[in-house]
Simulated scan of single mutants.
Amino acid sequence: MTMRSSTVVGAALAACAVIAAGTACGTTHENAGTGGGQQAAPSKCHGPGGSYTIGMSQANVAEPYRQRMDDDIRQAASTVPQFTVKFADAAQDNAKQVEQVTNFLTQQIDLLIISPNEATPLTAVVKQAYDKGIPVLVLDRKVDGDAYTEFIGADNVDIGRQAGQYFANVLLPQGGKIAELRGLAGSTPAKERADGFDQGIAGHNIQIVAAQDGDWLQDKGEQQADAILKANPDIQAIYSQNDPMAEGARIAATNAGRPDLPITGIDGLPIEAGGIKAVEAGRISATFVYPTGGREAVDAAKKLLIDCQQVPKTDTLSTKLVTKDNAPQVYAELNRQ
């Protein structure tokens, strides 16, 4: 099943020009530096005869989703003999991630893949790589501005909107009081999933009486849900911005004597410990598939470095609502990819 819907916003790289003595690739970054159409440094494309080092800067690997993203990149890259991928884990530390990307640049990597911990603190170092003529693929979480080659990820506003509509149409069609567990403040999915959810419940008499940051982590999600339930024992459901926090909220709800409290998540990883199986088991009422983009990132790297082709500025990956009715089918479909 194809989990993508690509929208070409602008070419990030010009195609290679092959000359008799070898391959020379020029690149025009449409928004590099301060001037549109500015000519950047030569790109890293040397065709199929080259060898390439890719730096993968991960926000953290404490979340199962991020570990799966690294695994997807590792697996996809293993099929491209020209690629060597170096992984770095920022452990939710912005300064550490900046340092790790700077180290990648010192090592003269050929392409950077990054899933930023937070947008603003990582923007400058991403732009630094881009302005050096290094192709930059931004995964899942955005940076400020557009100084990158391609953004690959799902539409988090739309996912949040769909989650809100699920609450309005299925869980609480008569309205009610709910709580929200948000991800890491400063990361773009946290804001976008909140904004979309607000749009989805607008006009449906659903009131968010408590909202706390769980930083995408199960243990913090449990702590925050525990505090929310003690302060608001009459809430009727919890919207969690990812599955691990939803699992933590389920533990807190069970401990509070409310094992049947509806809780939804986002991620829908097709693994035994993932959200799809949690829906199938009844721990989570619903989740939304949120593709990691790892396979798509390696595909884009191959186009840029080996095929000397352009890539779209944005590759929007599609999502899917997962309920108990379709969980087994979605799990099987995703594992056939």
Rank of each mutant, 00 (worst) to 15 (best):
Q82M: 15
A90W: 00
V101Q: 00
A91D: 09
V125Q: 06
N60T: 05
P81I: 04
P116I: 02
Q67L: 14
F87I: 01
Q162K: 07
A62G: 14
T123W: 04
Q92G: 05
V157M: 06
P121F: 05
D89T: 04
P135G: 07
V138I: 11
Q82H: 08
A124G: 12
L112Y: 06
G133W: 02
D140V: 00
Q108N: 14
N156Q: 12
Q162N: 15
A124T: 13
D71P: 04
R66W: 06
Q162S: 14
R141C: 04
L137Y: 15
S115L: 05
T120F: 07
K142W: 01
K96W: 01
D70N: 11
T84E: 04
G145T: 15
A154S: 14
E150V: 08
F104R: 08
M56D: 13
D70Y: 08
D144Y: 00
F151L: 10
N156F: 14
Q58L: 00
T106P: 08
V138S: 07
L139D: 03
F83R: 06
F104E: 10
S57T: 14
D146P: 12
P81R: 06
I114G: 04
G164C: 15
A147W: 03
D131F: 06
Y65M: 03
N94E: 09
D89H: 01
Q162M: 14
Y65F: 13
